[in-house]
Simulated assay, not measured.
Amino acid sequence: MVGRRKNKADQWLPPRVYRGKSRYEYRPSSGETIKLGFRPKDGIESEQVKAQVWADYAKAKDAPVAVNDVNKLISEFHSSAQFIRLSANTQTDYNHYCKRIRRVFGHMSPRDITKVNVRDFMDALGNQGKVVTANRHKSYLSALLSWGAERGWLEQNPAFGVKPFKEVARDRYVEDWEFELVQRVARESAYPYVAPMMDFAYLCRARTIELRALTEADITAEGIYLRRTKGSISEITGWSDRLVSAVKEARSVYPDAPVSIDRPLFHGKKGAPIPASSFKTAWGRIMRRALDSGLTERFTFHDLKAKGVSDHKDKASGHRSKKMQAVYNRRPDMITPTR
């Protein structure tokens, strides 16, 4: 049963139909707003106007209802200009995180998500020991819902104010023998380009994404020019015998690949860049074989940057903050005694 309108002048309007700025608007329980006909400019709502509004209402009411759920919000967000402006690395992460968010929240209306829902989602992952996973998914969900709130999908972001889990910084230090064992396995694998990449990660204290972006043009007379990501300071790492050997090895992996100044230093058989997913697969297989060959504890490729920072005489990492430099220094500093 439809309730009576407070304003008697509105009694003729169909259920859930209201006057917008220039048009009549039908607002079904699904939360969307469906535009009907234009309101008369002179403000006179004649019987003909009223009849047309009722006709438009009947069509809108019988039309399939658009489902404005989280699945649709994700599709809209990932097609937005804001998403396109994100770095390629962030886009890749978001495309990964959205899969779990779809499974958990996809069928829900964004308006129905509460802080308790977000907390329960994080706790479920945290109870499985996936603290970092929980935090990263919460960050993505918050970015998604903030974007939606600014565009009328919901009133306010329920993920805002939900506390992330405290993360413990990695302290895995890769010993020299472990490095050498895994590098040997890499040279004997189907992914020999990983071996010189390991040297670069260590010598230049570099991330995987930075190494995959290196080109022949970045090999200069002074050294290797590294464009650092995540706000770190780009720099040139001067030449050493080991770095010279690493460049020669990288170039020798696929010697028949086309050569150009903008060709990636680390590339596939035809000179194409190595996708992040392909590198991840390669590293996973190399690590599994290394564990079968005497490695006692696995480590990440990113741990090689930390090893490079830890072994560097100045602990140089490219980070602007002392806090981040400390995160990557995984060996105790040598301090002279008081006397």
Rank of each mutant, 00 (worst) to 15 (best):
S278I: 08
F160D: 09
H96D: 10
H302F: 14
R285Q: 12
D62A: 14
R16G: 00
D311M: 03
V253H: 03
E47F: 08
Y173H: 13
K61V: 11
N71M: 01
V70H: 05
V49P: 02
P164S: 05
R289A: 09
L154Y: 01
I261M: 15
R103P: 06
S139W: 01
R111L: 14
A206C: 05
G238N: 13
Q325G: 15
V2W: 13
S46M: 02
Y94S: 06
C204L: 14
M108Q: 14
I34T: 04
V118R: 05
P332E: 07
P273N: 02
Y97C: 02
C98Q: 15
S293T: 05
I84C: 13
V259N: 08
A81D: 14
S317M: 00
N157Y: 12
F83Q: 07
G20Y: 03
R331I: 03
S310E: 01
P64C: 01
W147K: 07
T215Q: 04
A55L: 15
R172M: 06
S87G: 07
S293M: 07
N95R: 09
Y24H: 00
Q91T: 01
T90V: 00
Y26F: 02
D303H: 08
V162C: 01
S234K: 06
I84A: 15
A201V: 00
K322M: 15
G161R: 01
K59G: 01
T336N: 14
V185F: 05
P15F: 11
R288V: 00
A276T: 14
K99M: 00
S189L: 06
T281R: 12
R5W: 12
G238A: 12
A51P: 10
H78F: 14
E249T: 15
P110C: 03
M334Q: 15
D262Q: 13
R289Q: 11
L243F: 03
K72S: 05
P40V: 00
T208S: 15
R19Q: 06
K305L: 11
G31T: 01
K8C: 12
S293D: 11
D262W: 13
L304T: 04
V244M: 13
D10S: 10
R205C: 10
R242Q: 15
L145C: 06
P110K: 03
V162G: 03
G129E: 06
N95D: 10
V185M: 05
I44E: 14
D292Y: 08
P14Y: 04
T133S: 13
D292W: 08
R227M: 09
T296D: 12
S146H: 06
L226R: 04
N135R: 12
A149P: 12
K163D: 07
P15G: 09
I101W: 03
L144E: 08
E249S: 11
H78Q: 15
V174S: 06
R205Y: 15
I233W: 11
V259H: 12
A272W: 00
L291V: 01
G308E: 09
A257N: 00
R298E: 09
R170V: 05
F121L: 13
N68S: 15
R85T: 09
R207G: 10
V116A: 11
Y191I: 10
L265W: 02
S277F: 08
L265M: 08
K305W: 04
G37M: 09
V104M: 07
R205T: 11
R103K: 11
E210R: 01
N89S: 10
A60G: 13
D176A: 08
E25T: 04
W12F: 09
I335R: 13
Y97H: 05
D171S: 04
P337D: 08
R184S: 04
V168L: 03
G284F: 14
